[in-house]
Computed example of a mutant assay.
Amino acid sequence: MPAMVGAIKVNSISSSGIFHIGDVFNISPSSQSKTFAGAGSFNTGDGLQVRNDYSVTQVYDADVVDQPMVGNI
């Protein structure tokens, strides 16, 4: 379904990232990673004011596989 796309702001695209505008049938990941970050780490936007007085990041993860890559080509 065609659509009109307005202004786009791209800050960065990683080596395994996907940037697509327009119609798409299927987009599936070709890599996986696990990221741990503290409070306020992934905030995006212009003119943010973030205050985190106390932040603890728990990195213990009991399960082995979070996102299986079986079947993704």
Rank of each mutant, 00 (worst) to 15 (best):
M1Y: 06
P2K: 11
A3T: 08
M4Y: 10
V5E: 00
G6V: 05
G6I: 06
G6M: 06
G6K: 08
A7F: 03
A7Q: 10
I8N: 02
K9D: 09
V10I: 14
N11L: 06
S12F: 09
S12K: 10
S14W: 00
S14H: 02
S14C: 00
S14Q: 07
S14V: 09
S15M: 11
S16Y: 08
S16M: 10
S16C: 09
S16P: 00
G17N: 03
G17K: 06
I18N: 08
I18F: 11
F19W: 07
F19C: 09
H20C: 06
H20W: 15
H20K: 13
H20G: 00
I21F: 01
G22R: 02
G22E: 02
D23W: 04
D23P: 07
D23G: 08
V24M: 11
V24D: 02
F25W: 05
N26P: 03
I27K: 05
I27P: 01
I27M: 11
P29A: 08
S30C: 12
S30I: 15
Q32C: 04
Q32M: 05
S33L: 11
S33H: 08
S33K: 13
K34H: 11
K34A: 08
T35N: 14
T35V: 15
T35Q: 14
F36E: 04
F36M: 03
A37D: 08
A37S: 13
A37H: 06
A37F: 08
G38S: 15
G38P: 13
G38L: 12
A39I: 07
A39P: 01
F42K: 01
N43M: 14
T44P: 03
T44L: 12
T44Y: 09
G45K: 02
D46Q: 10
D46S: 09
L48D: 10
L48P: 04
Q49M: 13
Q49W: 08
Q49G: 12
V50I: 15
V50P: 03
R51E: 07
N52C: 15
D53L: 12
D53V: 06
Y54V: 14
Y54N: 15
Y54A: 15
V56Y: 13
V56K: 14
V56P: 02
T57V: 10
T57N: 07
Q58T: 10
Y60F: 11
Y60G: 10
A62W: 00
D63Q: 03
V64L: 11
V65D: 08
D66L: 01
D66Q: 00
Q67E: 01
Q67C: 01
P68Q: 00
M69C: 00
M69R: 04
M69G: 00
V70E: 13
V70Y: 13
N72V: 09
N72C: 09
I73Q: 12
